[in-house]
Amino acid sequence: MRVELTGRRKERENLLIQVARASGQNIAKCYQCGKCTAGCPVAVEMDIPPHQVMRLLQLGLKDEVLDSSAIWLCASCATCTARCPRDIDIAAVMDALRARAGREGRTRSAKTIALFHDIFLNAIQKHGRVFELGLAINYNLKTGNLFKDADLGRVYFTRGKIGLKAPKIKGGDEVRRIFQKVKQMEAGE
């Protein structure tokens, strides 16, 4: 499909400002050298490689980016950030994009990954710490893949590495307050 570039100036500028606010990064600096894509461990699995994510943002084509699987596949290894010749923290940009896509419920392209983050954070919210057995069971229940990694779980369990009881901390209320604040902030946006 031909991309219509005419007259998107306002959208482009707004997007640059939004990305800068959410990630502290200036996308306009990117000169498309591709070093991020070259070093990215998961670029081959991405629908849009990292340098093209940056390019789409530069052109103001945000929907394509927010609906991509790339932003969810990003393993947050920060190889791109460490090697970017323009000193752009690309991993931070990916974080900001994921956060926004998650907020807007645009997780269709990578449901399981988004789901995992959801369950993980719910566990923290509930217990203050992560309860691995609960996490795995919950994840498998929700994905319908009941025996995913069951072999691993069995070994972990027999070696006493996974408890049956969820951990509990005294400061649970403080942790819950953090999550409440997040909800308030998101509602305010």
């Binding site: 900001a96 954070l121 710490r129 901390i169």
Partner: peptide, 22 residues
């Protein structure tokens, strides 16, 4: 004493504030 989870990848992949506060 009474430490809580750092939020790991899931926090900073989801919300900047969460990834700092935890």
């Amino acid at each position: 004493e009474d430490w809580s989870c750092c939020g790991a990848t899931s926090a900073h992949a989801t919300n900047h504030f969460l990834s700092i506060a935890l």
